[in-house]
Design a protein around this nucleic acid. Structure first.
Lengths: 236, 236
DNA sequence: TCAAAAGTGTTAGAGGTACACCCATGA
DNA sequence: TCATGGGTGTACCTCTAACACTTTTGA
């Protein structure tokens, strides 16, 4: 900061995104296969260099839109900085990693070298990208519990059982539709549209359709143990 | 990443820390007063330039130890990247911000331009440093609820009422000693040393002394709503 | 023996989970 | 009318807040 004349070795800042979506019943991440060395043929995260006129979030949004035709990410958030000096061979590259989410009803057009991979069965990844994906998954799992982040995985309108399978895929275990509905409703996140879905040919009661009230992330269950004293409380 | 020949404008990466400690009953942050422009006489966070051979966490630890003689930070964690193109005048500087915590019994020697300031009454800060401090405070407050991070605010051994005042200062509201003890004990974070503290001259029952069992941060209350089904559960 | 400070017992309430039961549809 | 899938009612359990009450000290 006040350093004056350091050798100033070249430094590049890149942004990377773990773009997650639930597809075909499992949580997947968008990866592209590197053609060139280093790490040719390994799979890596979309992203690229930070430009002079943008901050990291603008940068990752631009790069996702440009390179991968993902304009419809419903949520983007910073994960962490990855900065091990040798994380990438050659000149140093510091990376800001993001989690981003694509709702399940979208199927963005992808460049030929790009594919969705199950997070639980990723191919060999380039550099530290595998670790970034796992970090993104963990963040998503945690936030499904205490925020409304489900909106970013779900289509605009959905049945509770569809939502249940999204949550199950993301969390990695079966969630009960009964309780999912109850929890999200009690928190005031879900709103019934009034419509119902037509049952399949095997019958069954038509499922009510819901939507999320909010489409931006908010903490809905601030797990605050050691809460502030209640109004009447004297608060020793 | 695969960009080849960009104009490569100069880019500096700095690390900054909001060093927090509870002193004299309130949560404080370590700030130093800038002597030079830009933002002369404003208060700013300790930190500095990332070197070629270290990652961001090593860097902030080094700089705290070097510049501010704070070797005894009990906890350091990444907060976020601050990267607005104009966050600092002149050549671009991207910052990785950290939260770090100093236990209340330590009183590190400080350089003459450096002082502790109440987080709730900070002087005019340089650049975006005020926002970083608030972010650090919010992170600390959240983590006091669902992790064992209290160990990083407390001395090695303490009474429950001393711990209560630390939590109260950090959270900004009075916490009940009764419930604090109960919550932390149930979670298995506290251990009685068997010793007691001698009462003051006004009498009172001698207070039992406790210590935290762990001295590294762990999530102790994984606020997991939508938990995995219990063993017997069939998990529809 | 009284005031002060610490610690425990106990009740009440919030929020979730599990599960039984009821509802609406197609064949 | 039966199978199928959706939705509701309810009992139970865990955790926390609040607060009365007991314990142990100094004066």
């Amino acid at each position: 900061m006040t350093d004056a004349t350091t050798g100033t070795p070249p430094l590049v800042h890149e942004v990377l995104a773990a773009v997650l979506q639930v597809r075909q019943g499992s949580l997947r991440v968008l990866l592209w296969e590197r053609a060139l060395e280093p790490h040719a043929h390994r799979w890596s995260l979309p992203g690229g260099r930070l430009r002079a006129d943008e901050d990291v979030e603008a940068s990752i949004r631009r790069q996702l839109a440009e390179k991968v035709d993902v304009r419809q990410v419903a949520h983007v958030e910073q994960l962490a900085v990855f900065s091990a000096p040798d994380r990438v061979p050659g000149p140093r590259v510091v990376a800001t990693a993001f989690l981003s989410l694509v709702p399940s009803h979208l199927d963005p057009a992808l460049p030929p070298d790009t594919e969705w991979h199950e997070v639980s069965a990723m191919p060999e990844t380039a550099f530290d990208h595998g670790a970034i994906v796992l970090r993104a998954r963990n963040r998503l799992r945690a936030k499904l519990s205490y925020t409304n982040i489900g909106f970013a995985l779900a289509p605009p309108v959905f049945t509770v059982s569809a939502l249940r399978s999204l949550y199950s895929a993301a969390l990695g275990y079966r969630v009960s539709a009964t309780n999912l509905q109850r929890v999200l409703s009690r928190r005031g996140l879900l709103e019934p549209t009034g419509e119902t879905e037509r049952p399949g040919r095997s019958g069954g009661r038509p499922a009510a359709l819901f939507r999320f009230l909010e489409a931006t992330m908010a903490v809905t269950d601030p797990f605050a143990v050691l809460k502030p004293p209640s109004p009447r409380g004297t608060g020793t």
